[in-house]
Design a protein around this nucleic acid. Sequence first.
DNA 1: CTGTTAGCGCGTTCAC
DNA 2: GTGAACGCGCTAACAG
Lengths: 336, 336
Amino acid sequence: MPRPSTRAPAITDVAKLAGVSVPTVSRVLTGSVPVSKARRERVLAAIEELGYRPNGAARALVKGHQSVIAVLASNTTRYGYALTIQGIEEAARAAGFIVMITVIESEDAGAVTSAVDLALRNPVSGVVVLKFDPVGVAALRALPKSLAVVAASGSRGTSIPHATLDDTAAASEATDYLLKLGHTTVHHVAIPSSGRRSGRALGWQKALERAGAEVPEVMYAGWEPRRAHEIGFSLASRPDVTAVLCGNDELAIGLMRGLYDGGRRVPDDISVVGFDGHPLGELWAPSLTTVEQDFAELGRRSFDLVAALIEGKPAPMTSARQPHLVIRESAAPPRD
Amino acid sequence: MPRPSTRAPAITDVAKLAGVSVPTVSRVLTGSVPVSKARRERVLAAIEELGYRPNGAARALVKGHQSVIAVLASNTTRYGYALTIQGIEEAARAAGFIVMITVIESEDAGAVTSAVDLALRNPVSGVVVLKFDPVGVAALRALPKSLAVVAASGSRGTSIPHATLDDTAAASEATDYLLKLGHTTVHHVAIPSSGRRSGRALGWQKALERAGAEVPEVMYAGWEPRRAHEIGFSLASRPDVTAVLCGNDELAIGLMRGLYDGGRRVPDDISVVGFDGHPLGELWAPSLTTVEQDFAELGRRSFDLVAALIEGKPAPMTSARQPHLVIRESAAPPRD
DNA sequence: CTGTTAGCGCGTTCAC
DNA sequence: GTGAACGCGCTAACAG
């Protein structure tokens, strides 16, 4: 069983082997100050031979922070979350940063502060909070103001910098589409939201109001496709429901199966539109009409934002590629 | 725009405010040595007032390592990968560790070493490699022997400690099931594998050989459900194919849609069995018969293993909850 | 129980 | 260009 045994080589070892002083090694490492070619090469050779790797903790101690950005999220596996994190990691790695992930299991104050404490125990350069839900909002509140913090979110920010995906407009677009198809109104099965009402629910409601259509009560499904399945099953016995906009694709899929189990057909009896652009949506039968969102891009942008904050540069206010409706098979004109 | 401005409070600030020496503060922090109640409370109050948080880099410098474990993976969003990472993070957080994630984009030597260097620039206590594919294998090779390293994998390990999910046996079970249903043989659509052949392919082949059934050529689909869709579509015109075991559920879903588009019905015309237990599988129509695997548990176990290595304890050789077949609707006896 | 002293590995003065 | 000296924040090893 391999035990961490031999001490990792330190800069002093390199200096000794190369026959130079420690600062000289440091200089070739950072490239801050020129070093004579001969010495540089000896240092490089020594580094190579020893397999030396600078100690990040020592570096961080000197510089005050390390090239690490913390990501705070309530979940890492859900589609949008996972993709956003992937985008953050990708951009971070390209910039020589590494990402630490800490999940916050609930919006309970204890869970939030203990997770934040754990994450901030390391001298991170900045933090990205996935503000897709109430947990994200709570995390933002618990973060010290002195840090470089950005939120990745669906809704626009307040005081702290936000990278956003405007799902409100996209939800309106999807709702308009269903209305235009001839449905008298559109129902909404919602995911948990960061505010009183998610951007998606807001956009849906606005579109309905603008069209003078009735605004049905929102059905809350949490994150569980199974719950959406139940909702779908019960909706199957309600002939007044002809179109449903779902808070995300997993719910849409659960809903469609519930509808199917209840004896209703999509899109013949009822139209369903999802949200996010989950890769399995297009493989469903019927394939899922949905609002595609570029979460990876949101993640990259979030990183760019923190990076700018860290360097004290003005935040690059380039807006993200916005969500857009992708028309497939699951929505159609109503029956009659 | 909030810039990182005011220096974070350090232990000296706390000591000064509490009117004690620095080591005393350290002692109440670590609890290593008893401190008189009066002083302890003053220290605690000062910590509270200042919002002090110990600097992990400084700690790491002293202790030789910090409470950080690095996770190396080729991907963070695919179902099994994401869940394993979730499990690692969960166990790590419970133990006061935080996880850093670095993705390795390809098995190309450059990509591997640069990612490993980036990850190890920080003084991690240990590392977990997701050895589900060739990239994981390459990463393992690039890691220094002096580190506490464990692989989370489907296949059993060689020199380094492994936490495994025995998918070979489970693949045999699934294949046996299809054979028992009356299929003369079973085809296999494979994911990329960490070895020449994945455990899943191996188990499938073994079961076939044991039963004296013909072993068809493996169809490689990569990770893309779309590719499985194409395979399904082409398989639709091959009446000799009556049962397919897929390397994962996403492929199974893509395959089923391809079959559907090619005019074949599942399970009437053809049986399909997936792998992993993706939550959307049960919502498909037909719901997907699959081999469920507890990836989160694999992740937790992987962390427990590194944690043990770090402390120099013998590795806890408790075996993980093993994958098992979940029978649903997508597999049935052949037509004739 | 407590304060003093030393040192973790590195970058950054500052002299030469 | 280069080396010597110092300090980042913290804990461990000593004295008391």
